[in-house]
């Protein structure tokens, strides 16, 4: 195993073996369950640059998300996509490579929407700085977006630059009884909702309102009135979100699969956690044999195929893989 501490050492590591893959804290173990020499990003750690006034920071890939969240919070800022598995030790590079976003993805978008730039090592061992370091940039191909969700199969992520937002002054979480049509009424409503999730079981809908403290009381009251939520609605502690972000509900040794869904498909997924207003679903089953037949998605943990239900395949994918990694130093998306 390699443990580079600098970007130059990361280059050496990529060149150091015929088959390599970067791993962070291993919180989504299925994504790196492939043959090859591990490049641990444990030492490739730290915030390189953070300028709160610019709404941007740059950090090395192995930086724990917990550190990022804490440093941003000190300045009254946050990553609005609500990173997941923060307490589990997940790294910034892992969040990018896996493309996982939390409930906050609903309002302003996911990892892909806040990643501005990336420094990565391609399969030729070249250190490349792609994208930009300012909040707006349209120069060159948007490789940073492509790296999101690419599972380290095209290049080794060394450092990333993110856009951040001011943290809302206050938040309020309501738990409403689930009923048909509720998701779309919430999503299309005037309340500027920050997150809408359905915790496992499908009985309740969690709604997060954000804004200045004095605005939230009347906003929440109006929402409950407009939706005739009645006595069964309750305000709940923000820890509920944390349990969802950490997948505490999932079977600890089971198979966890992420699926991109549409609000119309929510009914098929309420056994697990439905996030992002009905656009993301997580399914947890004990073994691969129990994976429902309809499921299409990406396995994060457990012994199951990486791509449940297959994935689209186009000739251009192999060509792009060849462009980044002609010697196949990194595993393929199918390994």
């Amino acid at each position: 195993m390699f443990e580079p501490a600098t970007l130059a050492e990361l280059q050496d590591a990529v060149r150091g073996a015929p088959r390599v893959l970067c791993v962070g804290a291993g919180t989504k173990p299925r994504l790196s369950a492939v043959e090859g020499v591990r490049i641990s990003t444990r030492q490739l750690c730290g915030i390189v640059e953070y300028d709160p006034a610019e709404f941007t920071f740059t950090a090395l890939a192995g930086t724990p998300l917990a550190e990022i969240v804490a440093v941003l919070a000190e300045q009254g800022q946050h990553l609005p996509f609500d990173p997941v598995l923060v307490e589990a030790g997940s790294t910034l590079g892992g969040a990018v490579a896996s493309g996982l976003s939390g409930p906050g993805r609903f309002r302003f978008g996911g990892v892909r929407d806040f990643l501005l730039g990336v420094q990565c090592v391609d399969g030729l061992g070249r250190l490349l700085r792609l994208g930009g370091k300012v909040v707006k940039n349209a120069a060159g191909f948007d490789v940073p977006k492509f790296v999101v969700g690419s599972l380290g199969r095209f290049a080794a992520i060394g450092a990333v630059t993110f856009k951040v937002f001011p943290r809302p002054a206050a938040t309020r979480t309501l738990s409403l009884p689930a009923r048909p049509g509720l998701l779309e009424r919430l999503a299309a409503g005037r309340w500027n909702i920050d997150a809408i999730d359905i915790p496992p079981g499908g009985q309740r809908v969690l709604v997060r309102l954000v804004g200045p403290e004095e605005a939230l009381e009347p906003l929440a009251a109006d929402l409950l009135r407009a939706l005739s939520a009645g006595d069964d609605a309750a305000e709940v502690a923000p820890e509920f979100w944390n349990d969802l972000r950490e997948f505490r509900w999932a079977l600890p040794t089971g198979v966890l699969v992420k699926s991109a869904i549409t609000p119309g498909q929510v009914g098929d997924f309420t056994a697990g956690h439905v996030s992002c207003g009905g656009n993301v679903a997580y399914t947890s089953v004990a073994t691969a044999a129990e994976i429902p037949a309809h499921l299409v998605g990406l396995t994060l943990t457990g012994n199951a195929p990486l791509w449940v239900g297959g994935r689209p395949r186009y000739a251009v994918e192999a060509a792009v893989k060849q462009a980044f990694d002609p010697d196949h130093r990194f595993p393929s998306l199918d390994d």
């Binding site: 493309g99 993805r105 492509f146 969700g149 991109a260 869904i261 549409t262 000739a315 251009v316 998306l333």
Partner: peptide, 25 residues
């Protein structure tokens, strides 16, 4: 190349590399 591809879809989320993000711009 003449290949017709379809990336992403009607969901706000996706799995795998972000081909739409690469194509845009």
């Amino acid at each position: 190349t003449g290949e017709v591809v379809e990336w992403g879809g009607r969901s706000r989320e996706r799995t795998g590399p972000d081909w739409c993000g690469l194509f845009t711009g």
